[in-house]
Design a protein around this nucleic acid. Structure first.
Length: 134
DNA sequence: TTTCTGACA
DNA sequence: TGTCAGGA
C-alpha cells in the first residue's frame, strides 16, 4: 500500500522527467495544457512529477509515436485524478500499465538513465531517488 | 542554474 | 514543436 503513496509522490522537476521520457519541456508542458498529465506544483510554481506521471508520459509518448493525436490519447487514457491526500484509485489503466511496465523494470530504467550522468551530478539525482530504494 | 508563461517563426 | 523574452 505504501507503494501507492510513493508512486504518487511528486518529486522530480521537469528537467529529470525530460531525461527519463526523452520528451522536451515544451512537449511535457503542452501535454499538461491538454490535461494528459497533471503534475503537482510546489514552492515557486515548479512542476513536480511522480512516478505515475512519468509512466503516463511514457504512455503518451508511445501513443504519439504511433501517430495518435491529443484527442485520441485523451480518450484512451483515463482522466487524471489529483487527490494530494486521498489514496490512489486503481483504475483499469493503472493495472494495464503494471502489465507492461513493472516496478522493477521502471526502477531499472531509471537507474540506467540516471547513472549515465556526470559523476558530479549523479549524487544529486540519486539523492532524490533514494527514498524509493529504501 | 533551472523552470515558468506567453508568444511567434 | 522549437525557441526567445523576461521573471522568479
Amino acid at each position: 500500500m505504501s507503494n501507492e503513496i510513493r508512486r504518487n509522490m511528486a518529486l522530480f522537476p521537469i528537467g529529470i522527467v525530460m531525461k527519463l521520457t526523452d520528451l522536451t519541456a515544451r512537449q511535457i508542458r503542452y501535454y499538461e495544457q491538454h490535461e494528459l498529465v497533471i503534475p503537482a506544483r510546489t514552492d515557486g510554481n515548479q512542476r513536480l512529477f511522480s512516478f505515475n506521471d512519468v509512466e503516463r508520459l511514457l504512455e503518451i509518448k508511445a501513443l504519439i509515436e504511433k501517430g495518435v493525436n491529443i484527442a485520441g490519447i485523451k480518450q484512451m487514457l483515463k482522466p487524471v485524478n489529483r487527490d494530494s491526500e486521498e489514496a490512489t484509485v486503481i483504475t483499469e489503466q493503472t493495472q494495464a500499465k503494471r502489465r507492461e511496465l513493472s516496478d522493477a523494470q521502471l526502477h531499472r530504467m531509471l537507474k540506467q538513465q540516471l547513472t549515465e550522468r556526470r559523476p558530479g551530478q549523479v549524487s544529486l539525482i540519486q539523492g532524490e531517488l533514494s527514498r524509493f530504494f529504501q
